Simulated scan of single mutants.
Amino acid sequence: MLTATGRQDQRLTLPWGPVESALRTSLPEDYKRMCEAFGYGTFSGAYYLTSIGAEESGDILSDWQVYLRSVPEPGSEGADTSQYAPYPIYRPGREGLIPWGGGEAGDEMFWLADSNPPHSWPTLVRNSDFGPGEWSRFDMPVSEFMGRALLDPDFGFFGLAEAVPTPFFTPED
């Protein structure tokens, strides 16, 4: 992806320990590597990865905590009608959604974290145009999802290759 976007590897050293400690799980290595290589910013003016220390929305731990506060827990009032149903937001020790990215068009990207190794967690994506319970599932790591979204003209609804034939990355300060 660095080559495709014309970027140099930033080789950032990010403090993953406190984030993974708060989540009580490791995060997928390919995701961490992308955050360290690119820093926080937007791919092709459309998609971003959450990271560490990003302002406002974009910090993975802050974003996860916002979801925890705003989305009803399973079994509580409103949980069945939540726009995230049938999936709960991740809570340590339980299966659930951990946000890893988003899009300018209202896309929300999550892992469905469970007891399996983090590299095997599927990516679940919803768009603001989707109704409650409507999801797209991708059984691939973040790096493959982002690579295909940027480069594969046959990637479907979330593909950008036709609209943005030369992918780019814009860092956010």
Rank of each mutant, 00 (worst) to 15 (best):
G6R: 00
S82L: 02
V164S: 07
G103N: 04
T5L: 03
Q8D: 11
Y90L: 05
G133R: 06
Y40N: 11
D139L: 08
P117R: 12
A149I: 00
P118W: 04
S128W: 13
V19K: 08
G17M: 12
P132R: 10
L49E: 00
G58E: 02
A4K: 12
E55K: 15
E55C: 14
V142T: 14
G102V: 03
E29V: 12
P15I: 00
T42S: 10
F145L: 08
P117F: 10
T166R: 13
R33P: 05
G75S: 00
P88F: 11
M146N: 00
P18C: 07
W111S: 06
P118A: 01
S21L: 15
L23P: 08
D129F: 15
S26D: 13
L68I: 12
G45I: 07
E55A: 15
T13C: 12
Y67I: 10
T25C: 14
E36S: 07
F169Y: 09
I98P: 09
H119Q: 14
F43E: 05
I89T: 06
G102N: 01
N116F: 09
F43M: 04
S57L: 15
L61E: 10
P167E: 02
A37F: 01
G45P: 08
E144Y: 10
M109N: 12
S120D: 13
F110T: 05
L150S: 00
L61A: 14
A161F: 07
E36D: 00
P72R: 01
A113G: 07
E172C: 10
E172I: 11
P117M: 12
G93F: 11
I98L: 12
I52N: 02
G41T: 05
P88K: 13
G78S: 05
A163S: 15
C35M: 02
T170C: 07
S115R: 13
Y47N: 06
L160N: 07
L23Q: 09
E29D: 15
A113M: 08
P28G: 08
F169H: 04
W100P: 04
E73V: 10
F169G: 01
P28D: 01
D129S: 15
A22T: 11
T123S: 06
P153A: 03
Y84S: 10
E172Y: 09
N116D: 15
G101I: 06
F138R: 09
E95I: 15
M146T: 00
T5V: 09
G159K: 01
F158V: 11
G147P: 05
Y90P: 07
G147W: 02
G41K: 02
R69D: 12
E95K: 11
G75Q: 09
L151C: 13
E56D: 13
V66P: 11
L23M: 10
G101M: 02
G17N: 14
E73C: 08
A149D: 06
D30K: 01
Y31F: 06
P28W: 00
G133Q: 06
F110V: 05
P165K: 10
L68Y: 08
G58W: 05
P74Q: 08
S70N: 14
I98Q: 07
I89G: 05
P141L: 11
S136A: 13
G6V: 02
E134F: 09
P165E: 02
D154P: 10
L23R: 11
K32F: 03
E134Y: 08
C35Y: 01
R7L: 04
W121D: 04
E134R: 10
